[in-house]
């Protein structure tokens, strides 16, 4: 059962804002996520979730505000890189490589010693059921196989913070469960997981905390139970009910983090 954690801060964002010309993609986002937390990051399409992930991984620069990952400023890429793993929605893989070549390449760029890399790669390929196909070119892989390869790539260096953008999208139930289980295992080992997904049961299953983004603003935050309690349904509410309630056009928007019953 997920539980809210406390301790050193892994992800800290203060008043992060990102604008594209006249469009505000992210509007004063503040986060404080403790080490080892699985943070479910929810929001409708276009709410600013991917923008947030790109900002927190240093791939994009905020218009204003600042953020730190494990105490490292997101603008210092050289320090930031070893601390984070990022799996974007589209797996960043090379069709011309096999899974093993791709992972060896990633390990090489991550400065993982080759013996350690070989061992880890073999273990992960085996764990995710790719061992038999490790020498096939990625161009011949199914969507699920690509997703699993990219997931392994993002965790190969044991990052302190793992950013996952729709990691189970398009996966069959077995593969999705493998990813879910891995997320939980990583969190148990102290890795902070920042998980963006539309698949709410996944969030309910693994998240310690949930944040809901709507129109670039954080409109709800807390444990899944706290967020669910914001909805009066007369019966037992689900995360889906809560999500729909806080992201409807006429929902009152709280400007502070923390689950609040308004």
């Amino acid at each position: 059962m997920p539980s809210k954690r406390s301790g050193p801060i892994a992800i800290e964002a203060i008043d992060l804002t990102k604008t594209y010309r006249s469009t505000v993609a992210l509007d004063g986002l503040s986060l404080s996520i403790a080490d080892g937390t699985v943070y479910g990051f929810l929001g409708p399409n276009g709410a600013g979730k991917t923008t947030t992930m790109r900002l927190l991984t240093g791939l994009s620069q905020p218009t204003s505000g600042r953020a730190r990952i494990c105490g490292r400023d997101i603008t210092n890429r050289r320090e930031l890189a070893p601390a984070v793993g990022y799996l974007p929605e589209t797996p960043p893989l090379y069709d011309e490589f096999s899974a093993r070549e791709q992972l060896e390449y990633a390990a090489d760029l991550r400065d993982i010693p080759s013996e350690t890399a070989d061992k880890r790669i073999s273990e992960y390929l085996d764990q995710f059921g790719l061992a038999g196909d490790e020498h096939k070119r990625i161009s011949a892989y199914s969507k699920g196989m690509k997703q699993k390869t990219a997931f392994i790539q993002s965790i190969l260096h044991d990052p302190q913070v793992l950013f996952l953008d729709e990691p189970t999208s398009g996966l069959d139930p077995r593969a999705a469960r493998q990813i879910r289980q891995s997320i939980t295992d990583f969190a148990d080992d102290g890795t902070t997981v920042f998980l963006s997904t539309h698949i709410l049961p996944v969030v309910e299953a693994v998240a310690d905390e949930v944040g809901v983004l709507f129109d670039g603003k954080l409109v709800a935050e807390g444990s899944p139970d706290e967020v669910k309690s914001r909805v009066e349904t007369g019966g037992e509410s689900t995360l889906e009910d809560a999500f729909l309630a806080v992201t409807s056009a006429d929902a009152p928007i709280s400007n502070t983090a923390g689950a609040t019953d308004e």
Binding site: T57, G58, L59, R77, R78, L80, A81, V84, G85, Y86, P88, P92, L93, Y94, A106, L109, R110, A150, Q153
Partner: peptide, 15 residues
Amino acid sequence: IEASEFVLTTVHPRA
């Protein structure tokens, strides 16, 4: 560079 999300979160732009 292709797969830029991977490469740019892994190594320095100079590389």
